[in-house]
């Protein structure tokens, strides 16, 4: 009996939190739609969010993209050359960089860098009753605090994914030329790459980045607002934001990939 009541209590708690999260997500979407229609001070928050989340993460993203692209380039060209299928290296590079690892690794980097920061910042604001202050002066905390962060993180991930593709496909070529005993001319490399690369590949990566950006930003802001009153809850919120973001990123990656290939 006690077990049943415990189970029921947990189920009610989970469903309550899920409904709250869905309601939060709906509210964020609604306020996002209004964000660009109203001239708000939220633009300033958005600009800063893109600056800190996107621009400041450009360095690490570029390094990752070049390293992974060069590795795929060198490994692919050496292995597939043995089978007389060196042409497949370009397909492999596009699939790995543009379709899969580009948006995925960018989302992971942003989650680790900015997801925790957002959750911690909002949690601190809750603990310091700043949210109540915003509400007291008539500012909707979702439209002023959450929406700029959601848009900023999403735009940053999309833009960083584009940079990841550029560095992964082109920057890796430069590195691979130093490692490759028989360098490929840039014209030949670009010609073959562009003959295989399709707009669908590019749009697929951007679509994933868009979804991942929404996931990371919504989860992080939600976890930030889930802090009640104690400052010890703030790091817990940060950890939860990262953990849940990672899981949801992987799940949505699988779902989006299946939708693309279905």
């Amino acid at each position: 009996m006690k077990l049943l009541s415990s189970l029921g209590s947990k189920a009610r708690s989970y469903s309550s939190r899920l409904l709250y999260a869905l309601g939060f997500f709906y509210e964020v979407l609604k306020e996002t739609g209004r964000f660009f229609r109203k001239s708000q001070v939220g633009y300033w928050v958005l600009r800063n969010q893109i600056l800190f989340t996107g621009y400041e993460a450009l360095g690490i993203t570029a390094i990752m993209a070049i390293a992974i692209g060069a590795a795929v380039n060198v490994i692919g060209s050496s292995i597939q050359q043995q089978f007389g299928q060196s042409q497949l290296m370009y397909s492999m590079l596009i699939i790995v960089i543009t379709r899969e690892l580009g948006p995925l690794l960018t989302a992971f980097v942003i989650t680790a860098r900015s997801g925790t920061a957002i959750a911690t910042e909002l949690g601190t604001m809750v603990v310091h009753h700043e949210i109540e202050a915003y509400m007291a002066v008539g500012l909707n905390p979702i439209s002023y605090l959450v929406v700029p962060r959601v848009i900023g993180v999403t735009v940053s991930i999309v833009i960083l994914t584009v940079y990841f593709n550029l560095f992964g496909l082109l920057g890796s070529y430069v590195v691979a030329q130093f490692l490759n005993p028989t360098p490929t001319p840039i014209i030949e490399y670009m010609g073959k790459l562009l003959s295989i690369l399709t707009v669908t590949d590019v749009l697929s990566g951007i679509m994933k980045a868009l979804v991942f950006g929404m996931v990371v930003s919504v989860v992080s802001t939600y976890q930030g607002f889930s802090v009640n009153r104690a400052s010890t809850e703030i790091p817990v919120a940060g950890i939860r934001a990262v953990g849940q973001s990672f899981i949801l990123i992987i799940v949505t990656d699988v779902v989006v990939t299946l939708m693309q290939y279905a």
Partner: peptide, 20 residues
């Protein structure tokens, strides 16, 4: 910085799409 960050990315994206 943010404007440049976004515009360069979009321009590169446009160039890639046009090249493709």
């Amino acid at each position: 910085i943010v404007g440049l960050f976004i515009i360069v990315a979009l321009a590169m994206l446009a160039v890639i799409v046009i090249l493709v």
